[in-house]
């Protein structure tokens, strides 16, 4: 993660971690609702019945897997590039 060289002592680091932990639940909820919306929008377009069809369920399950994999892959690239940038900027 790219960070500015803000130096925190141990107590400050703990306070920061506890704040970030509190945000983590929110973060998870955002991921969850975002996935539901994406897969709903992409897979469910027919409203001639109120139950999802097997086809729609299949689409949702592929959508979920693929979305997770895409996020994971992007996360890896993001980390790598950030690490490289950080080394470039602050490592000298």
């Amino acid at each position: 993660m790219l960070t500015l060289p803000i130096s925190l002592n141990l107590a400050e680091q703990r306070e920061l971690s506890s704040r970030l932990e509190k945000r983590q639940m929110n973060e998870f909820m955002t991921t969850f609702t975002g996935l539901v919306q994406t897969c709903f929008d992409d897979c469910i377009n027919d409203f001639t019945s109120k139950a999802t069809t097997p086809r729609e369920q299949g689409c949702v399950s592929k959508c979920f897997e693929k979305q997770m994999k895409a996020t994971e892959r992007l996360g890896e690239r993001f980390q790598e590039q950030n690490a490289a940038l950080q080394a470039e900027q602050f490592g000298k």
């Binding site: 993660m1 960070t3 500015l4 803000i6 130096s7 704040r19 945000r23």
Partner: peptide, 12 residues
């Protein structure tokens, strides 16, 4: 300092 570090992380 904590707020600045937090803001930085949120931005990233």
């Amino acid at each position: 300092k904590i707020a600045a570090a937090e803001a930085e992380i949120m931005l990233v």
